[in-house]
Amino acid sequence: MISILQTPRLTLRRFTEADSKLLLQLNSNPEVLKYLHEPPLATEEQALHILKTIILPQYKNNLGRWAIHLKTTNEFIGWCGLKYLAEANEIDLGYRLMQNFWGNGYAYEAAKHTVEYGFNQLHLKTIIGRAHIENIASLKILEKIGMQFIKEEIVDNCPVKTFSVTT
């Protein structure tokens, strides 16, 4: 297990192919995916495909979506991380939590420390964050971690608000 960072309550680590069950558990809940363009996953094979083609390749750049675990129980609660978007030449902050962990400040904590890691460890200059225009909780997190609203746009057929933070 390659740990990326620690927060007061969380450990963020790299996913491995062995985490396909965890990703399936997260991405099979329609409520978790409510504001995204992704259909719910139905099989572990689909989750493994996402790991192999989307998540794991980002690690070669020291970026990626990282599994979040509670320090107290080591329970998997979701992911957070930085992803390079080649089509826009941007570094994107993303986060996704299991529904039963919403409302505890975990997404904020993970996002805040991930942005700090991006600036302090990876020496990034700008990080972008996007959320569906109706995803009020996610929009509040982007604002609370210091991101500034840039514009509304359509990304992957979703109306989103785009935010940015720079060093």
Rank of each mutant, 00 (worst) to 15 (best):
S3M: 02
L5E: 01
P8F: 03
R9A: 08
R9K: 11
T11L: 12
T11M: 11
L12A: 05
L12V: 10
R13E: 06
F15A: 05
D19K: 01
K21Y: 09
K21L: 05
N29I: 09
L33F: 08
K34E: 06
Y35P: 10
H37A: 15
H37Y: 11
H37I: 06
E38M: 12
E38A: 07
P39Y: 09
P39C: 03
A42M: 07
E44G: 13
E44Q: 15
E45Y: 07
Q46H: 09
Q46D: 12
T53Q: 14
I54E: 14
I54P: 02
I55R: 08
P57G: 04
L63P: 00
G64V: 11
G64T: 08
R65Y: 01
W66E: 11
W66N: 09
A67W: 06
I68D: 02
L70I: 09
L70C: 06
K71C: 11
T73A: 12
T73W: 13
E75M: 05
F76I: 11
I77D: 03
W79R: 14
W79N: 13
C80M: 09
K83L: 13
K83S: 08
K83C: 12
Y84F: 15
Y84V: 08
L85N: 02
A86Y: 05
E87P: 01
A88P: 00
E90A: 04
E90S: 06
E90V: 03
I91K: 08
D92H: 06
L93M: 04
L93K: 00
Y95V: 02
R96D: 02
L97E: 10
L97R: 03
L97Q: 09
N100A: 05
F101P: 00
F101Q: 04
H113Q: 05
V115D: 00
V115G: 02
V115C: 10
Y117H: 13
G118M: 14
F119Q: 04
N120R: 09
H123C: 10
H123S: 15
K125V: 14
G129F: 02
G129M: 10
A131V: 05
A131I: 10
H132P: 02
E134K: 12
E134R: 13
E134V: 07
I136R: 11
I136N: 03
S138T: 14
K140H: 10
I141R: 05
I141N: 07
K144L: 08
Q148I: 11
F149G: 04
I150Y: 06
I154S: 02
P159I: 09
P159T: 14
V160D: 03
K161R: 05
F163I: 08
S164V: 15
T166A: 10
T167N: 14
